[in-house]
């Protein structure tokens, strides 16, 4: 049982926080939806279609944020052979994959009316598609070995290797000519979005972030319980 002492300690801190994080997520998403759909003005060029931004951009940020967290957690798991890091990465992967799917699908629904295409193989879109494959590959690799520790190690290495894709996605629009426009919010000269559109976007992003943390704690609890079940069953087989 000592192997899970630290995940348990983590849960002792995370469990009391869970209701608060969940409440923050629900509140921010509700406020973000209201502001984005009712209060925010249409764009001077894109008209009402700009409202897709309020789901597209936060999910794109989360797709990157979750992957970066997953890579850091995998690195700690590889270096310190600590079960918590690996379980956190494993709990995060499906959430990140879902955010990536939402990002790609809403981007497609936005690109069709504005750009005139559902999909183009430009550097931004292609690198985000690769991000989705990395998430799926990570999840597949965990279960691909008979020996679970080997699967864990292989998946953690893939998560680390795939981390090079994160800066490529972020800077693809600056390094190469792309159909996708450059960054509007996270840039050196300050946001190029009017405050009446920036606030709904940021509130929605806080809601999405809180959603990730709440769901990650839930999934982590589930993973820790599953690991304990495996341990008990192994003990029964050996005795």
């Amino acid at each position: 049982m000592h192997r899970f002492a630290n995940p348990n300690q983590f849960l002792r801190i995370a469990n009391p926080l869970l209701p608060w994080i969940s409440a923050l997520s629900v509140l921010c998403m509700a406020a973000g939806l209201y502001l984005g759909l009712f209060q925010a003005p249409p764009d001077y060029q894109q008209g009402e279609s700009v409202r897709i931004m309020y789901v597209h951009v936060p999910s794109a940020w989360m797709a990157l944020f979750v992957y970066a967290s997953m890579a850091i957690a995998s690195a700690t798991a590889l270096i310190w052979r600590h079960p918590l890091g690996f379980l956190m990465a494993k709990a995060s992967a499906p959430i990140g994959a879902c955010f990536t799917v939402i990002c790609l699908a809403t981007g497609s629904l936005w690109g069709k009316p504005m750009w005139g295409t559902w999909w183009e193989w430009d550097a931004r879109m292609t690198s985000v598609l690769i991000l989705l494959f990395l998430y799926v590959g990570y999840m597949a690799l965990i279960d691909a070995f008979d020996d679970p520790t080997r699967g864990q190690r292989a998946a953690s290495i893939l998560a680390l290797v795939g981390a090079v894709n994160v800066p490529i996605i972020k800077f693809s629009v600056d390094w190469w000519n792309t159909l996708h426009q450059p960054a509007s919010v996270v840039k050196l000269s300050g946001p190029a979005i009017h405050p009446s559109m920036l606030w709904p976007l940021l509130i929605m992003a806080v809601g999405f972030t809180a959603f990730y943390f709440a769901l990650m704690i839930v999934r982590l609890r589930s993973e820790i319980a599953a690991a304990k079940i495996r341990n008990i069953r192994l003990g029964q087989v050996h005795s």
């Binding site: 008209g47 009402e48 409202r51």
Partner: peptide
Amino acid sequence: MGGYGSYIWPAYLLAALILTVLL
């Protein structure tokens, strides 16, 4: 939605559906 309803609503519904199913 100024003629963009057929793009905006599927985007929001899909996002809500995916996040709810995962939850």
